[in-house]
Nucleic acid binder design. Structure first.
Length: 483
RNA sequence: GCUUCUUUAGCUCAGCUGGUUAGAGCACCUGACUGUUAAUCAGGGGGUCCUUGGUUCGAGCCCAAGAAGGAGCGCCA
């Protein structure tokens, strides 16, 4: 009869806290104290459930197999706990070891119940889901992904799947990974000695996408409001805590939106997502908050965050972002203390791109809140960004977050065929590569705008993790594609 | 790609001015205890001091090259 009890997720058992019910829970042993108390976790929530066993009533030798990391199935009564650490616990009537965890092997892994550095956990990415920190991070990651779909669905956007393999290389967004099924030891060449892509799988040179934007624009010019949410690939040799070779990007694109609408969308979107996590992932965020507080207390005072994780999230959800034109940003920087004291390494003058030290100053020192910078000089922005009436700037925008840097980059798109064609020439983009993109400017062209949100950078902000490699399950970066 | 820091037990780290047998905490094992909260107490096992070469009577420590990792910068989301 006990055998037929259906499994309940631990989060449900803890939430309902209904005593005297007979339940079955299954999970992995986090600790086994005093030969009597098993802390069991099944990933449904951060908390463990305490399973209490009576050694006398258990079959000989069974409890020897209950070691940290083992998978168990447990059936018993939910009762009020006599201990202080939890409201309810399970008095075990039946215990089955589904999978043992050999202690000699476990002690070599991060499953062993002790403190590990974040780098050691990264080396064992296949096991780090078992830790409180990464359990919390990946539950938050899921919740953000869910909230993104929910937000767009509520606002009438359609989820558009843009291609991952693309023949378009005109975006100028960065180095691309090549896609081919050539035998690499025997690549066919034509008479001029060039690689003959005509013989390749797609009959042309193809790459992994660096952005779904150009294709999303095509969708927006008929469906109105669309968004993409998919993997993106950059073959840049970037060695920083906020770049990956494979990452996930969210790209909304809206017909008839101008730059103002675009900034409003970006801000409303981010604030909604953060509020959604505060409302729905309270326990995990509280844990990540406490974890950060502990870690910060080890650091010298001047290196600590001025606001705690919880404060930062609540602050961003509740307060409007600063909006500042590029020209105004240059003025603010030129009047700043570090500029006057010559503390900036890079020059601050109209026409040069803002460096991270400048962005960090504006976001972390001057305003201490997210900043949207718009109307950048055309000289260092992409060909598709809409030229402003001054002839010098384009309707671009970057949303900058404290500790993260650029979290969103976007623009109003150039909808005027003559200007866009000229831009293609200026950027050396052959029209035959983007004929389909230019076509939308011929048949009922209309103003439209969109942006790209770096999903992992958002997860970093919400979890307080400081390295992007720790907010994606299996990070890909130069010299690393393990797992 | 550039700058900089790090590499000592399974993990986190200490190791003095270059000097005999390289230490601690945690984890693991054995035993005790049996309402614990990363349980506690007693005992035990565990080392290619990142690699290669050099200096020296003698190198974990000094020098050179390389490797791996972190942080920052550039590129960007």
């Amino acid at each position: 009869m006990v055998e037929h009890v259906k499994r309940t997720r631990i989060s449900k058992v803890l939430e309902s806290a209904k005593t005297d019910a007979n339940v079955c829970v299954k999970g992995w042993v986090r600790s086994f104290r005093n030969d009597r108390f098993i802390a069991l976790n099944d990933g449904s929530c951060l908390s463990n459930i305490q399973a209490v066993v009576d050694r006398e009533k258990m079959p000989e030798g069974l409890l020897d197999k209950v070691t940290v990391g083992a998978a168990l199935s447990v059936v018993g009564q939910i009762v009020e706990s006599q201990g202080a650490g939890q409201k309810v616990e399970i008095l075990v009537e039946k215990l089955e070891v589904l999978g043992i965890a050999n202690t000699d092997d476990v002690k070599k892994t991060i499953i062993s119940p002790k403190r590990h550095s974040i780098e050691t956990l990264r080396e064992q990415a296949h096991l780090r889901f078992r830790t409180n920190t990464f359990g919390a991070v990946f539950r938050v990651r899921h919740t953000l992904a869910y909230a993104i779909h929910q937000y767009f669905n509520k606002k009438g956007f359609y989820y558009l799947h843009t291609p991952i393999i693309t023949g378009s290389d005109a975006e100028g967004a960065g180095e691309m990974f090549k896609v081919t099924n050539f035998d690499l030891k025997n690549i066919p060449h034509n008479e001029e000695g060039e690689i003959d892509f005509g013989q390749d799988f797609f009959g042309k040179e193809t790459n992994l996408t660096v952005s779904g934007q150009l294709e999303a624009e095509l969708g927006a010019m008929a469906l109105g409001n669309v968004y993409t949410f998919g993997p993106t690939f950059r073959a840049e040799n970037s060695n920083t805590s906020r770049h990956l070779s494979e990452f996930w990007m969210v790209e909304p694109e809206v017909a008839f939106n101008d730059l103002q609408d675009n900034m409003e969308l970006g801000e409303d979107f981010l604030r909604y997502l953060i509020q959604y996590c505060l409302d729905n992932r309270q326990e995990d965020i509280q844990f990540l908050h406490d974890r950060e507080v502990k870690e910060e207390s080890q650091k010298p005072k001047n290196e600590r965050n001025e606001m705690s994780l919880m404060d930062r999230l609540q602050f961003v959800a509740a307060n409007e972002f600063i909006r500042l034109s590029y020209t105004d940003a240059i003025n603010v920087l030129q009047n700043s203390k570090p500029y006057k004291k010559k503390k900036f390494k890079f020059p601050v003058e109209w026409g040069t791109d803002l460096q991270s030290e400048h962005e960090r100053y504006l976001v972390e020192k001057e305003y201490k809140k997210p900043v949207i910078i718009f109307d950048y000089p055309a000289s260092f922005k992409a060909f598709y960004m809409r030229q402003n009436d001054d002839g010098k700037t384009v309707a671009a925008m970057d949303v900058l977050f404290p500790g993260i840097g650029e979290i969103i980059g976007g623009s109003q798109r150039e909808e005027r065929l003559d200007i866009l064609t000229k831009k293609c020439k200026d950027f050396n983009i052959p029209e035959e590569h983007v004929w389909w993109y230019l076509d939308t400017r011929k048949f009922g062209t209309a103003p439209h705008a969109g942006f790209g949100l770096g999903f992992e950078r958002l997860v970093m902000f919400v979890t307080g993790m400081t390295n992007i490699k720790d907010v994606i399950p299996f990070p890909r970066y130069p010299k690393n594609a393990e797992f």
